[in-house]
Design a protein around this nucleic acid. Sequence first.
DNA 1: GAAAAGTGCGCC
DNA 2: AAATGGCGCACTTTTC
Length: 626
Amino acid sequence: MNNSKKQLLPTIRDLPRFLCEPDPYIYLSNNYVVLDYETTNKDKGTALRGDNRIVLACWHAVLGEETEVLSHYGGEYELSELVEAVQRADFLVAHNAKFELQWLERCGLDIGEVVVYDTMLGEYVLGGNRWVGAKVGLDAIARRRGLGAKATLVSNLIKNGVCPSDIPRAWLEKYCARDVDLTHRLFLEQRRELEEHGLLKVLYTRCLLTPVLADIEKNGMYLDAERVEAAYVAAERELFDLNVRLHTLTGGINTNSTKQLAKFLYEDLKFAEVKDYKGKPLRTPAGAPRTDVDTISSLRPKNQKQREFLEVYSRHKEVSNELTKYLRKWHECCENDGGHLTAFFNQHMTQTHRLSSSGAKYRTQFQNFPRTYKPFFTAPTDKWLVGECDGSQLEFRVAVHLGRDEQGLYDIEHGEDIHGFTAQTLTEAGEPTDRQGAKAHTFKPLYGGQSGTHAQQTYYQAFRLKYKGIAEAQQRWINEVLSTGKLVTEWGMVYHWPGTKMSRSGYVDNTTSICNYPVQGFATAEIIPIALVFMWHRLRRSDLQMRIVNTIHDSIIMLLPEEEQEDFHILSKECLINAVYDYLRCTYNVQLTVPLGCSVSTGKHWGSKEETKYEAEKELYRGNGV
DNA sequence: GAAAAGTGCGCC
DNA sequence: AAATGGCGCACTTTTC
């Protein structure tokens, strides 16, 4: 166990050079490999399925002026030449490199030692918020850039479910060679543009996260079968009763149909629609009456029939949601897979560049479990725990930094109760609100929110007055977008809102996005990924057994042996706090001016209430950091 | 009959 | 005219 080369917890200096001395200009080197795999096609060909295999690998090995064009038809055990080429190179180029990395790991590569350049992420970073998802697919990019479309015959075969292993070898080779060539030319175009726009560093950060995600997707999370089963059975039982009652009350309409439900609510039961301050009914974007919980819960029943319907309906909605989105799937997962639940992370789906996730086999994504279900997750073995660490008030603190807001800094340093201020302001404006109820409103101004009830508007104004620095920064962002159509953030990321105009009333299009993207992006697309990267590499170079299993925007979820609790605390603090300051300074030349904090908890199940909080030392954010 | 649009709801 | 950001998934209805 005491491997001489490893330590329980290596320091940051022991990490690979590309981390302790981050250098985005490595991408200007001409020592790289461009790779594309064709694989069998179960679940999109993922390497995480043992029954998939590599059909064909095509790669370019570039060294100086020389480009070798290579390919190999056959499985992963015969690809040592490729693995060695990748190890010799300064970096690996691939489109959606997470996919290739998972395969390369099966081919025997240590993916913790590789720097990748992902052309999908390259395009994503160049686009800012302009193109996401399918628009950064290789086809779409080739079309947009006039690089020549993909070979249509083979791509159509694959799209229509034909396994590459059944496609004639010569066709497939031509297709794959073309994709590598396309990826290579795309890379050369992109790196020039990224350098020109000062975006290499942003791409570097995106790409550092790729091997981390490639690895943690393999882990998954574990459900406590007993807890899931109990909740599942109780919910099915309750739903059955509620269905009967609802059927009687409504005469058998389908309450899942917004159309039928709206007719029942507003015509049959004669509820009055909720109106705005001008007396106009609040409708959906398409003009239909609203039937969501918020709307329905604000309806005021005037008779017994209305009252009873609201009561039964709201509970029915709750229970059926829980069942269809979580409990039935998790019940299946416990029956068939011992409660092992997996998902994958999408690096290219969001406008702000935070991650998104999608459920794998059971289609439950990893970022929207109901909070009350956290205790349904547990460790797969005895003597292991679930741990969670998250950035304290992360988006607020980021906003305070971006606005160099003195009041905000004071409040953070003195642990002021921000929600308390919200509650007090709302109460004094005639809308009695407790602290819990105030939480929803506290940060709405960070999203540029202005409207609402009189008391709410009073609060938003009070927020803008109190945190002047934040409000002024947001106003500057709006002005910049008005005059240039884009916003260059202080870490280099550029968001675009072309054609933004001011209306006659003075309201600027996209105000809410302009106010929010920099905050959300810096917090959850830069800071947390940095922490994840450092945490993963330090664990990888240690003897510790704990592993990262999930990340939800401002938090990281782990599985760990009981005896590694202290290491987990240290690691959380050092990665979520210290490493972030260093990395931001080295890579982005950004000196954070606020304390970062984190809170750490562990337990037999996820969601333990006992938290330990840590705060940054003053010299990290108030001096030169030395 | 499949795809797209619309609506609602879970999380941060 | 409206004016709180970001997602993915279930379900119904509309469109092609």
